[in-house]
Amino acid sequence: MSLPAYSFAYLDEQTKRMIRRALLKAVAIPGYQVPFASREMPLAYGWGTGGMQVTAAVIGPDDVLKVIDQGADDTTNAVSIRRFFALTAGVRTTERTAEATIIQTRHRIPETPLAAGQILVYQVPQPEPLRKLEPRETETRRMHALAEYGLMHVKLYEDIARHGRITLSYDYPVLVNGRHVMAPSPIPSFDNPKMHRSPALQLFGAGREKRIYAVPPYTDVVSLAFEDHPFRPWKAEAACGLCGATETYLDEVVVDDRGGRLFVCSDTDYCAERRKAGHRGAAAGHALAAGEGG
């Protein structure tokens, strides 16, 4: 039996057109979740099928693709998705944020500010920001339609009453264009401010839940909060051990079994670029700096 021949970027043209139509609608109504006929992909649901379908629908032969997971280019899933598009679309891939025209990401926004013309594609596990408060799709769709977001604020109110602060640290809900409450995907709340009026086009794909949504360039993205309890993004209070950066989101790496810890930039490209430019952290020269851990 012979194997079938696959289309450019795997999906057939009809499917890509269907996804593009959903994307256009999503861009026209920032933050609104557009239902789309998500396809089975050769990767499991929850592993980036939504992001892959969006990337497949917007990518062209001249694009340069970067794929990150947890901010890193060399995590297994990022490697797997990058190879998938190198194989099915034959596009050039890169690890450098500035060089990429399309960046598919899971759980992070790159530290290097994005530029006009770049597209950031988010992989989204749960597109519905109200789902944890209301399990019913029929009900949450009505809440979005009528902009009834009181319940979301009740959750935030309760957080402050119980803990003195809002205890959402990732997938922190945002209000887009003053109208729709949106899940930014499980990026750390540290990354939320990067979404606000970004010059890049931000596209969100949720394959299993069959939803696409978007934040067009230069759109207001405001993290929900109270006037007297404003949004505060956090990160570990440390500097990157490798490049010394203090303004980046840090991964905590357990370096031995005696409680030894090392903080390093979660964005591997950003860290490598800084080191190339001569920046050095307290643990410069550590084996982690070699890039490949496995």
Partner: peptide, 17 residues
């Protein structure tokens, strides 16, 4: 199956938060 097993993917950015 996909979504249950995606818990095997790294979540260290969320976990760090």
């Amino acid at each position: 199956s996909g979504f249950v097993q995606h818990l095997k993917l790294p979540h260290y950015v969320d976990f760090q938060s």
